[in-house]
Each structure stands twice: as structure tokens, then as C-alpha cells.
């Protein structure tokens, strides 16, 4: 099952910290959907995920105010 993490309303660096904590709970190979409301936070989180070796499966704007990252642990 794909886990979901809603980070709308959160700011850096909590977006990254909460993503990291949630990923720690997941098994390797599991997917996580992350929702954010800010492009800069989206860029920061995706950059951090990649530098930690996770794979970004998809990244897109769902609307003017919502960005979604799909990451594989």
C-alpha cells in the first residue's frame, strides 16, 4: 500500500524532517506520496530525497497550490 504524507502548511526544514521520519518507518522498495503547498519546499525535499539515495518516481503540480512527489524508498 502506498503511504501518504500531507505536508501542506509545513515550512522548511520541517518538511524535510517529517519526510525523513516517515521514510524511516517504511520498508525498502515502498512508495510514499508527499503533498506540499510550495514549489521551493517541493524542490528542497526532492533534492534532499535524491541526495539520500531515494528514487523520485513522479513529481507534479496537482493544482496551483498543491505539489505532489512520489518517492520510492
Amino acid at each position: 500500500m502506498t503511504e501518504k504524507l500531507d505536508l501542506r502548511g509545513e515550512v522548511c526544514p520541517y518538511t524535510f524532517v517529517k519526510t525523513k521520519l516517515r521514510l524511516e518507518e517504511l520498508e525498502g522498495g515502498q512508495d510514499l506520496i508527499i503533498l506540499l503547498d510550495d514549489p521551493a519546499a517541493t524542490a528542497n525535499v526532492s533534492r534532499s530525497l535524491r541526495s539520500e539515495g531515494h528514487e523520485i518516481l513522479d513529481l507534479k503540480a496537482l493544482s496551483d497550490e498543491v505539489w505532489q512527489i512520489v518517492v520510492k524508498k
Binding site: 514549489p39 521551493a40 517541493t42 524542490a43 526532492s46 513529481l59 507534479k60 503540480a61 505539489w67
Partner: peptide, 10 residues
Amino acid sequence: CMGCGLCVDI
């Protein structure tokens, strides 16, 4: 480029 448009918003 996968056309996500993040750079455009950034």
C-alpha cells in the same frame, strides 16, 4: 525533462 514545471514555478 519530464515536464513537471517545478522550475517554472521556482
